[in-house]
Design a protein around this nucleic acid. Structure first.
Length: 644
RNA sequence: GCGCCCGUAGCUCAGAUGGAUAGAGCGACGGACUACGAAUCCGUAGGUCAGAGGUUCGAAUCCUCUCGGGCGUACCA
């Protein structure tokens, strides 16, 4: 594995520097070289040493190379660029080594919390970004041999659920039985119905309940478990959760556990956290001023301007309060535990409950590290949660509580216009328009997926008219997911995605289908080989690894080596994503790999290559690359279609 | 006001930890299907990395300021 090679390089340089000059070695930075003629890796460390040793970097580089001696997997080193050391890898050895994989042992469970959609309306494009990022991160962690638990927190006692209940009861005038009938009606998408109801509530408040008295009342009733309202809220929220999970399963996103906020409350998690926070004086009761009657957390010692309300004056707990308790539980710092019951047996999803759970549930919680995948607008709240942990003295755990933040999905003004958002002349000049769930303005996840599948279906039919309808549908679906997930991952976390149908529905250029296509073509070459030579022994490809000509071929053509090297770097890029929390790096890498592969099979004839050894070498290249493409796609939750 | 993020080709974006000649896609223009399938490939044009200082052997990247833009700073989440 290349990561092992990196470690060997760093170790060798460090120990040589230490013994040679008797100094603490600086951090050994390894860079990719700008061109393959400079080797594969380079370190600028002689520049650092030049400062410490007061000598020209070039001569340090030369001396270091001599002193370091032979490093396993490195063919040679050269000083370059007035002070770099360039490393030229033993190409054949790197290819052989790539077939061996070693993973670190168990370093403790990692909990990744993502999706977390308010269960009061249909999922939209922004939620898809969250899920795509979170799920990709999970896949990368698992591939690296880490133990991962995926949690999708259900905020079923929050204001947003209260609002939709206000809408159902007071705007739509529906009873609990009406709601049951609506849910049973297969021709109605219940999450879509609530989307519209929720959008109508905003104007209802404006006109009929400007002080949000109904919201407060409903919220309180939900929290207290008051019969009718609470039952309706439970039914509405959990029905919508099922809708969300169905939507997410369309893009290959799954969960282990659905922790519910109502259970955090009913099982008194909050009471415990509250007592602790109070004992440590992390929160206190405000007797006067604007926050009179509330329990608040003081974030700024100067005064109450920055105080954050944790318990409202009517006694209900804000989201952060419950989130602190939940975070404590995730880290195994809470004396209590949930009860658990199966939510979806087929998908092996569990849900928390306050009633009798099943005794034989898996061990949930007790994460050593916790990643919360939540958009950047929640940085403030995430900080308060962290503040709470620190106030309780959990410094180590606070360090291991990581806000995996990313920017939101907005709409281009044109797109917003198409969706019926009213825009002023100024709006039209803006780079993006924020989606508003409150106004019902946004792209619903299922609608987008439907549109993508329809578009993909056209393309598949046109290119593969002989496929059965089922096959066509399957492939169209895989392509739709490929396009969508790649689109959501190719932007870096800090980039606001200005959503536009034209771009999202595109299958050409830097897209998921482009990469899928490359993988399909790779597979097809091997299929073709089987067809043209039914007796072909595929074991010969494996044997090519030990053929001395492997090194000769790899060294004679830099273009093929660059392709193979990109393929072998997939694990390294996965590691980079883990360190930098930047899944876009993987997306970009997969695309670059696909590009190089397209170039390769355009430039070289593989099946018709007359020289048998050379042909085997080409086939080995195809095999290595299609395996890497498949893996990179899999890490992004994208499948390789049978045909395209 | 305070805090965070962004500003790179016509457009949308990459350039992790400072490093060698700043790269993709789209769009534009011109080419390549009798070939392992063209959802592909090749070529051309396109840059004062918002601006100004500074640190450094070296800055798109770090620091300061200025100018644009976005978000947060709720008894919403």
């Amino acid at each position: 594995m290349l990561l092992d090679l990196h470690a060997r390089l760093r170790d060798a340089l460090r120990s040589t520097i230490r013994t040679q000059w008797n100094i603490d070695p600086p951090e050994i930075v390894l860079n990719q070289t700008p061109k393959i003629e400079f080797g594969e890796l380079a370190t600028p460390v002689p520049f650092e040493l030049a400062r410490l040793l007061k000598r020209p970097p070039q001569s340090i580089a030369e001396e270091l190379i001599i002193r370091v001696g032979k490093i396993d997997g490195v063919e040679r080193m050269e000083p370059a660029g007035r002070g770099y050391i360039n490393f030229f890898l033993d190409r054949a050895a790197v290819v052989r080594g790539s077939r061996l994989r070693g993973y670190p042992g168990d370093e403790g469970k990692i909990i990744v919390e993502h999706t977390n959609i308010n269960p009061n309306k249909a999922a939209h494009i922004g939620h898809l970004r969250n899920a795509a990022i979170g799920d990709t991160f999970v896949r990368i962690l698992k591939a690296a041999g880490r133990k991962v638990e995926v949690q999708n927190y259900i905020d079923n006692t929050g204001v947003q659920v209260a609002d939709v209940i206000v809408g159902v009861k007071h705007v739509e005038r529906k009873t609990l039985d009406d709601v049951r009938r609506l849910i049973a009606n297969r021709s109605i998408k219940f999450d879509y119905y609530c989307w519209d109801v929720y959008a109508r509530v905003a104007s209802f408040y404006e006109e009929q309940d400007p002080h949000y008295a109904l919201r407060a009342q409903v919220l309180k009733e939900i929290e207290e478990g008051s019969a009718d309202t609470a039952r309706m809220a439970e039914l509405v929220a959990m029905t919508i959760v099922r809708c969300h999970l169905r939507t997410m399963s369309r893009i290959n996103v799954h969960y282990d556990l659905l922790p519910r906020e109502s259970d955090v409350l009913h099982l008194k998690f909050w009471d415990y956290a509250f007592r602790q926070l109070r004992k440590k004086e992390a929160i206190f009761f405000e007797k006067e001023g604007k926050n009179a009657g509330c329990w608040v957390m003081r974030l700024d010692s100067d005064g109450q301007d920055e105080d954050k309300i944790i318990v409202r004056s009517n006694g209900t707990v804000t989201y952060v309060g419950k989130d602190i308790a939940y975070q404590l539980w995730k880290l195994g710092l809470l004396a209590q535990d949930f009860q658990y019951t199966v939510f979806d047996a087929d998908a092996d999803v569990w849900v928390t409950t306050s009633g009798d759970g099943q005794p034989d549930h898996p061990a949930f919680g007790h994460g050593r590290t916790v990643y919360n995948v939540i958009d950047v607008r929640q940085s403030y709240l995430q900080n308060i949660v962290r503040h709470g942990l620190l106030a309780l003295g959990h410094e180590e755990q606070a360090r291991r509580s990581i806000h995996f933040s990313y920017e939101v999905v907005a709409l281009t003004p044109e797109c917003a216009g198409q969706l019926g958002v009213e825009l002023t002349a100024e709006d039209r000049k803006r780079p993006h328009i924020e989606v508003s769930g409150r106004k019902g303005q946004g792209v619903k996840a299922d609608d987008l997926l439907d549109a993508l599948e329809l578009e993909a279906m056209k393309e598949v039919k046109q290119r593969n008219p002989k496929l059965t309808p089922t096959e066509t549908e399957t492939i169209a679906h895989q392509i739709a997911v490929g396009a969508l997930r790649y689109f959501l991952l190719k932007f870096t976390r800090t980039a606001i995605i200005a959503f536009d149908f034209k771009e999202a529905l595109n299958f050409d250029g830097e897209t998921g289908p482009y990469i899928q296509y490359a993988a399909v073509r790779g597979n097809n070459i091997l299929h073709k080989l089987r067809e043209s030579d039914p007796g072909f022994d595929f074991g010969r490809i494996q044997k090519m690894l030990n053929n001395p000509k492997l090194g000769v071929y790899l060294n004679e053509s830099d273009d093929i080596w660059e392709l193979v090297y990109l393929a072998l770097r997939v694990d390294e890029i996965g590691h980079q994503v883990f360190v930098t929390l930047e899944p876009a790096a993987l997306a970009k890498h997969a695309f670059a790999l696909a590009q190089r592969f397209n170039l390769f099979y355009h430039r070289y004839r593989i099946i018709s290559e007359p020289d048998m050894d050379r042909k085997l070498f080409y086939i080995l290249v195809v095999d290595v690359v299609r395996e890497a493409l498949t893996k990179a796609l899999d890490l992004m939750g994208i499948e390789v279609p049978r045909r395209m």
